[in-house]
Structures are given as structure tokens and as C-alpha cells.
Design a protein around this nucleic acid. Structure first.
Lengths: 226, 226
DNA sequence: TTTATATTCAACTATCAAGTTGAATTCAAT
DNA sequence: ATTGAATTCAACTTGATAGTTGAATATAAA
């Protein structure tokens, strides 16, 4: 086999990974899977696609090596094959944010000015957690919280925030996080908390990235094989 | 704009980056561009594609934000827009190596057993360079060497290795590197050096990754704006 | 065994991407 | 101005991909 042919077939194989992340719906699925295992039906619901279509996309993801499937009874559970898939999504996001004007514009217009939420990098939050000078707030649904969350984080889903506001220690800065850099929940939580007089800001990225960076995590259920 | 629509348009934009790396020839071009600026003509020659086709691919890469173009006289010079593009290529490569059986098989069959070359990680090489217990050998063409190389590396392109073997200090371990993890030159250099009785191994990845990691680099020409 | 349910498969349509070819631009040099 | 060379554009062919629909599988429970 010639060097040229080798190179080309090699790159053609690598391109299968690229193709897999070359479609919006598949990226959305990967982002949901970054939270934990999901069945076909669940993903179809989350993405709004037909079950058959969802199934077909998941098989492409499987053939490109990005996800694994596990059958349990009637259900097939899909999960990320490798934590580096989260790295991949992160690099794509950063590149798009930096070089695709539309993305920056879209994010800033929809997310009420991304930077106004004073996003805090992981390392900084960890330091402040160790000092004990900050309240960490997880605004994801309880199932996702149960599958893993930041140490000593409060779990108050966005909808319940008003009702359960008294649970938060008053007078301490709050750092909210949820699923990822673009997860709307934490933006709204911060905006709302500020209205109520809290000092609040966002964690820059979400739980998957925190866990990927091998930062400390608490588990209640063992849904995840960390 | 609804959250669902926001998410979908956002992911559709991110998918443009994915699409860009979802085609073998474009991946090959990015890998060449990781070495430095190239004109359309040069890339067409390197990839074996027609100039028109090459030009079209490059424009896709530009629209996805991965490369910039600079016109100088008759020539248009393309270059990577962001060092993170090298990160992106690396993540794709690692994922494909770990999860696409074909890739592992292909690499191992063509590259005379990848692991037999005892690939040395960057950090280990740097440590040994500081100890002064190793000869670093750059087997790329002189132009690429001139645009940047590891400190105190010898530059002997593969073809001249036999003739210029005497330049290498005898009895010292040699670590060869070239353009990247799959760059054939360094594999052949190591195999050949071993035949001649040298203790030789490969740097795990290539020059672009070394530079990306902010490891020390020497420049003779200032072709690169590091 | 029958029934119900989650998933996958097969066939089909419509849209999009890769590649070719020849013409159109653009810029430098005569 | 005219020529020559590098690049891009436009039109076209061919093949691939996303999505729908209805049937086929596979598993658990009745």
C-alpha cells in the first residue's frame, strides 16, 4: 500500500468522526448523552425527532465510535463511548464561538449577553468552594443531579427556585450551573436571583466538563460508572 | 425566539465545524496547514486534487472558521485560523484510534506496528532533552524545519539520512519526529536507524502538537507568527 | 400463545455535497 | 493595453444524507 493511499484511507476513516458531529441533531444528542445514558425514546423526545430518525442517527454515532449501546429489556440505552467526546464538543464550541460570527451573535442575543453573567472558570469556583465563600446551585432536574453533581451543591430546578428560595443561605454569593456552556437554565437562574437581590453568577461550563476535568464530584445513585 | 429554536440553530452552526472536518481531503489539508501557510496550488499538489476542487474545499474551511486566507500578488495563502484546530484534529484522531477498529488495524499494518517504535510523549522527551541524554532528529524537509523546530534538533530529511549519518553523535539515543502522529517519515527513520545499530524511537506526536502545547521552539525564518 | 411496546429495517423522496469542466476574475509583468 | 498565471465561479453530473412511512424484530407480560 502506497503512502498516499494509506493517508487517504486513514483520513477517510477519521472523517467518519467528523461527519458524526457534522449534523445539528446529532450534536444535540451527544450533548444530552453527556449528561448520562438515554434511551432512544427519551432522546427522540428531547430532540423532537421521530423515533425512527433518532434511531438512525444513533446508529451513525455508534458506527463512528462516539457512542455505545446497551440493551436492557425492551430498551436500548445509549451512552458516550469516551469522555473525550465531551472534549470534542468543547473544542468545536470554542472554535465556533471564536470564528463564526453568527454563533457569537446568536448566543449573546438569546442568552441575555453571555458575559454579563460573569462566567466563572472551573478552577476559580473550586478555589472558592474550598474557601467556603460560595453557595453552589445546581439547577438541573433531580435525576441528573442524582447521577452526579458538584460537592455540596444545592439542587433546585429552575421552576422551583421561587418557592424554595429560602433554602439558600442569604448574603452569600451564588454560583449556578447546569448542563453546559449554553444551558439556558443557569442563565435564567442567575438573572432571576439577581432580581431578588442575590449576588449571583454562572459557572462557565457545565457538569460534564467539570467531571471530565476530574474535578470532585458527588454521586447519590450509581447510574454513572465514573 | 424559543429555547428549542435557539438550541437547534446553535447546533446547526456548530455542525458547520463538524462538517468541515467530515471529509477526508479537508482533514488532509488541515494537517498540511498545521505545518504552516500554503497556497492553493501547493495544497492541490500535496493532496492530488484539482486546483478548482481544492479551492472549493478551502472556501468551505474558511466559511466554517477553521482557516484564514491572505492574498499576496497572484497567490492566496491559507493558514489555520486558530491553534485549537490542531487540538480538534488530535481529539478526532484519538477517538478514531480508540473506537474505530479499522483505524487501529490500518495504522498498525502500514506503520510497521505503531507501538514498536516506542513512542515517547512530549513531556518525557522534554525532560530527556534537559538532561542532555538524547539526540533529537527532525526528518522533515528543510523548509518546514526552518519555519520552526525543537531546540537543538538536527535536520536530516529521510532521503539524506544514509549519506549524513555521520553527523549524528554516536552512542546516544535518537528521538525522531516529523509532522504528526501518522507521519511516515519518522517511522522509517527509526526503523532504518535501528538497522544501523542506533537506539532510536519516535516522538509520539509531531511538531504542530509540540508547538501547540507551548513547548520550546526554535525559529530560523519568521514564516510563523507564533 | 398472544399481545403490547421499543427499536430497527426497508423503501422511498427530496435535498445537499463532491468532483469535473470551461469560463471569468484578478493581479503582475511585459 | 495585452499577456500569462493563480484563483474563483457557474453549470452540471453523480452519489450521499436526512427524513418519512409502514413493516419487521425482539422482548416482556398477560
Amino acid at each position: 500500500m502506497s503512502s498516499k493511499l494509506f493517508k487517504q484511507t486513514l483520513f477517510d476513516h477519521l472523517a467518519r468522526v467528523g461527519k458524526a458531529v457534522g449534523q445539528g441533531h446529532r450534536l444535540a444528542m451527544l450533548e444530552y448523552l453527556a449528561q448520562g445514558e438515554r434511551t432512544v425514546e427519551a432522546l427522540a423526545g428531547l430532540t423532537g425527532l421521530s423515533v425512527a430518525n433518532t434511531s438512525k442517527h444513533l446508529q451513525q454515532l455508534r458506527q463512528s465510535g462516539l457512542v455505545f449501546a446497551r440493551k436492557e429489556g425492551l430498551y436500548v440505552h445509549y451512552r458516550l463511548s469516551d469522555p473525550d467526546v465531551i472534549t470534542l464538543l468543547g473544542v468545536i464550541r470554542r472554535l465556533a464561538e471564536r470564528h463564526l460570527g453568527e454563533v457569537e451573535a446568536l448566543v449573546n442575543s438569546y442568552l441575555l449577553a453571555k458575559d454579563a453573567m460573569e462566567p466563572l472558570p472551573r478552577e476559580a469556583l473550586l478555589a472558592r468552594m474550598r474557601e467556603g465563600t460560595v453557595t453552589v446551585l445546581d439547577v438541573r432536574p433531580p435525576e441528573e443531579y442524582a447521577a452526579g453533581h458538584l460537592p455540596r451543591a444545592f439542587n433546585i430546578p429552575l421552576k422551583e427556585l421561587e418557592r424554595r428560595l429560602h433554602e439558600l443561605p442569604p448574603g452569600r454569593e451564588v454560583v449556578a450551573y447546569c448542563r453546559g456552556a449554553y444551558c439556558v437554565l443557569s442563565f435564567e437562574a442567575v438573572a432571576w436571583l439577581r432580581e431578588k437581590g442575590f449576588i449571583a453568577r454562572r459557572l462557565e461550563e457545565g457538569f460534564p466538563e467539570w467531571k471530565l476535568a476530574a474535578f470532585p464530584v458527588e454521586n447519590f445513585l450509581m447510574e454513572e460508572i465514573s
